[in-house]
């Protein structure tokens, strides 16, 4: 999932300093799972914003809605009829949803309510960690299902660096060395000979280095 966390309320208030009526839009997908921008977080933020304005002797009207997704036309269309009633929209979706909303509703200011962080997993309740950087050319098949691109600080492709100590990374003693994890798992799988295979220089043009990316499926496209 895409992991995000709520922006500081001060920052959100600053966006809407001159607004009187806003639409607070949550998203039912990833940001709901990581407790950053689902229905509950929309309710809490609405309550907090109203109080912050009241405290200043001002009034802010906040309408709440949580869409199934904000990265698809069909769900974003659900607010077309009401969008013109608001001075601005605060979207609690990831950066993708915020942008799609802004593209679709060109005349309405759209502000982000969360900081979008990474693609990751729920390691345990309340703990999320990065697992994928969307490099565009997956090498998990060669690395025992553990990604050195997202989990090694240096994104090394052929074994650990000299900073790996007792299975931990030199940048943070709490952080597992991705290559230690890979070696441990290869051993467990009886595939340690795979560690000797050199991974060729990675083609980073499929990552962000090649500019914004796009996938077109002609069989599905209308």
């Amino acid at each position: 999932m895409i992991v995000a966390e709520r922006k500081p309320i001060d920052e959100i208030i600053e966006f809407m300093r001159d607004c009187k009526k806003i639409l607070l839009v949550g998203c039912n997908e990833c940001v709901t799972v990581c407790y950053a921008g689902g229905k509950k977080e929309v309710e809490i933020l609405a309550s907090a914003l109203k109080m912050a304005f009241m405290k200043e002797g001002k009034e802010l009207e906040v309408e709440e809605v949580t869409l199934e997704r904000q990265c698809d036309h069909e769900y974003l269309e659900e607010i077309r009829k009401i969008i013109d009633e608001y001075d601005a929209v605060v979207s609690l979706a990831c950066g993708v949803g915020v942008q799609f909303m802004a593209e679709k509703y060109f005349r309405t200011p759209v502000f982000p309510g969360v900081n979008t962080l990474f693609m990751g997993v729920t390691e345990e309740r309340g703990v999320w960690a990065e697992r994928c950087q969307g490099c565009g050319k997956c090498i998990l098949g060669e690395t025992a299902g553990i990604c050195p691109v997202s989990r090694c600080a240096k994104r090394l492709l052929n074994g650990p660096c000299g900073g790996s100590t007792k299975g931990k990374c030199e940048i943070n003693k709490e952080l597992d060395c991705a290559w230690q994890l890979i070696i441990d798992r290869l051993k467990e799988l009886g595939m340690l000979e795979d560690y000797e295979k050199l991974i060729p220089i990675k083609d980073w043009s499929t990552e962000r280095a090649g500019g914004p990316r796009k996938v077109v499926r002609e069989d599905l496209k209308q």
Binding site: K40, E43, I44, S47, A48, K50, M51, M54
Partner: peptide, 11 residues
């Protein structure tokens, strides 16, 4: 007790 219940009490 949820966060929203406590927030709304103050609001």
């Amino acid at each position: 007790v949820d966060v929203i219940l406590m927030m709304e009490a103050f609001r």
